[in-house]
Design a protein around this nucleic acid. Structure first.
Length: 633
RNA sequence: GCCGCUGUAGCUCAGGGGUAGAGCAAUUCACUCGUAAUGAAUAGGUCGUCGGUUCAAUUCCGACCAGCGGCUCCA
């Protein structure tokens, strides 16, 4: 295993070099702009030590180690210096050098710098050592700034016409938390000023769709300090959306032969010792709950906290865990009966709430929380049934995302990293499981990427990934194959040969978690939920208080028909009522005045389709009922 | 958890060593109105929390809490 490590690193390095040579024009421009940024920073702070400066989605960054802490106040100064560099219009010159020559430059501090220094270019020395023997080494010069770089670049610094320093953050050198923390300066660059302006405008627009902002404005969910960080509180309107989604999933489950079960939020530590969650994932769990009597006894003995922890780890005193997963509970339900091959597959589903001690710095909005509800299910089947079951699961995820109009997702086949020891189970089972998933995903005919090292500790998985408004990837739906837990829990069924066999397990969740899914759904719809999901589906707007009674009659009729309806009977003018209703993103507005009362009709205005004119009350009610039952978008 | 930034009314934000302001929202009253803002009045804040410096702190300093961006992590 140890011998594999350097090989893997080399392969990775080669891949990124290849990728660099395949840069798009825009990436080439942005990477060049990163050099312009570095030139400017190096001029302002000559002690700056640069690490890597690649193009990224939406721009570029350059990692720098620097005594001075760069703050947004410095951006203007940096941009002003960049402007000079651009104006000088120096060509980007590529020079091939020998390893020794490159090392000599790096040692004299000349790389990633505008001058020689009395310290070496530490990160460049390090990078040089990582370049494979047979790799050509190149240096790019723009004016006084020389950098170790594979390129490619644009012709001249003057090509970087439209750029902006966006933000500064910290990042570990080479992404390893044991390494030094560097300052990462983010910037962006476009072919021209117009495109840059448009990009910045899009970012502003995107922020308005942020689910954290909309969730508060629309009264969907909230957080409270005294409840705790990362513990979402679903308010009534958010609760409606959640319930509708659950009902939708439940209906699909009924069609596909699932059974819903209910299990407690806690389980004994031994359960998780068997599954492997405890103690291997202890850091990401809420601490165990220890029985009062055991605590009292230890305290009487004068035990310390570490004594307590030792006892818990050793299993000499018992405790409970807030469940980080639903699988062990479902496994115990499967195991509660003798199972014959005729019973399989057994499909157990639950909207199961789990608790994970995510790092505080990682929490945010609904997308990363400490308590969330999975639309979870575990399938127990035979080896022969596995392929078909996986495909059915993938089909369900597709149906669910399709119903909501979420077509813009990525599919990721997450495999184990053969170089890591975090996985449980034997390699043969892993190979089988990975092959089964790969086959299913290919049969499904969607594009996907294979990601070694992204698997769960108990098995490989297929994930559906969606971007949020600021471009971050989030895993939603998932289908995972597990040969390990059936082994660990010694599960069996009786086969047609009248002998016990080991079932295979599938973990799957089409939404992933309701919290994260709703977060991304808010952004997907910009808060304008389709009628079936909208917390308020119709708002009745009487022209004046004289028509309150007629409005109330319509409300009763709609409520009777199962429509979520409210009336705006304030003294506002109709224009103001419409404005408010639109800001609340209500799909249907029904205006009632003298004319409508006379005709027994309503004047209907749809959120997205505009004025629908005068519609008879009956037609209006049936139209909305249809809209809801079709779950139309 | 780490690095950085931020925290003033329900929301968006101004202000600033001598204990606070606007707009919107809310409440009340008047208006009874035809498709994106009718007018007036009222109320609303221990300036995130706890310490320190000071005659005096919301303002300066520190710790903590929370939010944001990124990193690391994500069974």
């Amino acid at each position: 295993m140890l011998q594999l490590a350097p090989l893997m690193a080399d392969e990775k390095e080669r891949k990124t070099l290849e990728e660099r040579h395949q840069m798009s024009d825009l990436e080439r421009l942005r990477h060049s702009c990163a050099h312009v940024l570095a030139t400017a920073v190096s001029r302002i702070w000559p002690d700056a030590q640069f690490a890597a400066g690649p193009p990224v989605e939406g721009g570029f960054y350059y990692d720098v180690d620097l005594e001075h802490r760069i703050t947004p106040d410095d951006f203007e100064k940096i941009e002003a210096e960049m402007k000079k560099v651009v104006k000088e219009n120096a060509p980007f010159e590529r020079i091939t050098v020998s390893r020794d020559e490159a090392m000599a430059l790096a040692k004299s501090g000349r790389l990633a710098s505008v001058a020689e220094r009395d310290v070496e270019s530490v990160f460049k020395v390090d990078l040089l050592n990582d370049i494979p023997e047979d790799e050509e080494i190149s240096i790019f010069k723009n004016g006084d700034f020389w950098d170790l770089c594979a390129g490619p670049h644009v012709g001249r610094t003057g090509n970087c016409k439209a750029y902006k320093v966006m933000s500064v953050a910290s990042a570990f050198y080479q992404g390893d938390k044991n390494n030094k923390s560097l300052q990462r300066i983010y910037g962006t660059c476009f072919k021209n000023k117009t495109m840059l302006e448009e990009h910045l405008e899009r970012l502003e627009e995107a922020k308005k769709r942020d689910h954290r902002k909309l969730g508060r404005e629309m009264g969907l969910f909230t957080f409270d300090d005294s409840v705790g960080q990362g513990l979402p509180l679903w308010k009534p309107k958010g609760g409606i959306i959640r319930r509708e989604l659950q009902d939708f999933i439940s209906a699909e489950l009924d069609k596909q032969g699932y059974y819903q079960v209910f299990t407690p939020h806690i389980g004994k530590l031994d359960l998780y010792r068997t599954s492997g969650h405890f103690p291997y994932y202890e850091d990401s769990q809420f601490p165990p709950i220890v029985e009062r009597e055991a605590l009292k006894k230890l305290s009487d003995e004068g035990a310390t906290c570490s004594d307590l922890m030792n006892h818990v780890s050793a299993g000499t005193i018992d405790g409970f865990l807030l469940k980080p997963m639903n699988c062990p509970h479902h496994i115990k339900i499967f195991d509660s009966e003798h199972r014959s091959y005729r019973d399989l597959p057994v499909r157990l589903a639950e909207f199961g709430t789990v608790y994970r001690w995510e790092q505080s710095g990682e929490l945010g909005g609904l997308t990363r929380v400490r308590s969330f509800t999975q639309d979870d299910a575990h399938l127990f089947c035979t080896d022969e049934q596995l392929g078909e079951e996986i495909q059915q699961c993938l089909g369900l995820v597709k149906t669910v995302l399709g119903t909501l109009g979420m077509q813009d997702y990525g599919v990721r086949l997450s495999l184990r990293d053969p170089d890591s020891d975090k996985y449980v189970g034997d390699p043969a089972s892993w190979d089988k499981a990975e092959a089964a998933l790969r086959e299913a995903i290919q049969t499904l005919g969607v594009e996907y990427t294979e990601e070694p090292g992204e698997a769960a500790f108990y098995g490989p998985k297929i994930d559906f990934v969606v971007k949020d408004v600021i471009g971050r990837d989030w895993q939603l739906g998932t289908v995972q194959v597990d040969y390990n837990n059936p082994e660990r829990f010694d599960l069996s069924y009786i086969g047609s040969d009248n002998k016990p066999h080991r079932p295979v397990m599938i973990h799957r969740a089409p939404f992933g978690s309701l919290e994260r899914f709703v977060g991304l759904l808010i952004e997907h719809f910009e808060g304008k939920f389709p009628t079936w999901l909208a917390p308020e589906q119709v708002r009745v707007l009487p022209i004046s208080e004289k028509f309150s009674e007629a409005a109330q009659a319509l409300v009763s009729e709609l409520t009777e028909a199962g429509v979520r309806v409210k009336v705006d009977d304030t003294g506002d003018k109709i224009g103001a009522k419409i404005r408010l209703a639109r800001m609340d993103r209500v799909p249907y507005l029904a205006v009632i005045g003298a004319r409508e009362v006379e005709e027994n009709s309503v004047s209907v205005r749809h959120r997205d389709q505009g004025d629908l004119g005068s519609i008879s009350t009956n037609d209006f009610v049936s139209r909305i009922k249809e809209d809801i039952s079709n779950r139309s978008l």
